[in-house]
Design a protein around this nucleic acid. Sequence first.
DNA 1: CGTAAGATGAAG
DNA 2: TTCATCTTACGG
Length: 187
Amino acid sequence: MDKLYAELEQGSLVAAKALLGWKLVHATPNGRIAGYIVETEAYHENDPASHTYKGKTKRNAAMYEGAGTIYVYFTYGMHYCVNIVAGRKGVGEGVLIRALEPVEGIEPMKVNRKTSVISNLTNGPAKLVQALEIHKGYNGTVLGHGLHLEKGIIPDEIVQSRRIGISQAQDKPWRFYIAGNLYVSKS
DNA sequence: CGTAAGATGAAG
DNA sequence: TTCATCTTACGG
């Protein structure tokens, strides 16, 4: 975890790769729900697609709080997504968690997602937030309490490609995922 | 104030 | 391909 923290501090590009394979765990009052991170995207201040491109606002403030902070944002009138903030305090960058491989708490995930199809539980940024019961209350808090990371798997092969769902900087290859993993979101 | 667009997902 | 649904940000 210390090595990971050092990598998170180096910025979103390094962090996005370093986070692959780590287990994202939400310790809820009713038990643990967790999965391996299999897909990420990096965002930073000089990136037109980033929420921090035009500077600090009330919404994106958590992205300036330094490595290890959690940024939860609301979008499209109905969805939440999570980021692990990267870089040093004062710099606005982070890593969007786009997909997980379900590991613990599969049953509650099925209930939360209203489906029993395992491959459809956490293969998208808003889906995993719903499956793990992550809520906006975590925005601006630090990893380590309810929501935290634990050692997971060592990725076999990492693929780098274009990001998904953005209208700016579509040519930048700042998305990373574990090759061949069944739970990577569809593009 | 008014309004447009958004790091999505599910259904048709 | 369309639509659901709403907060934030920015212009007037």
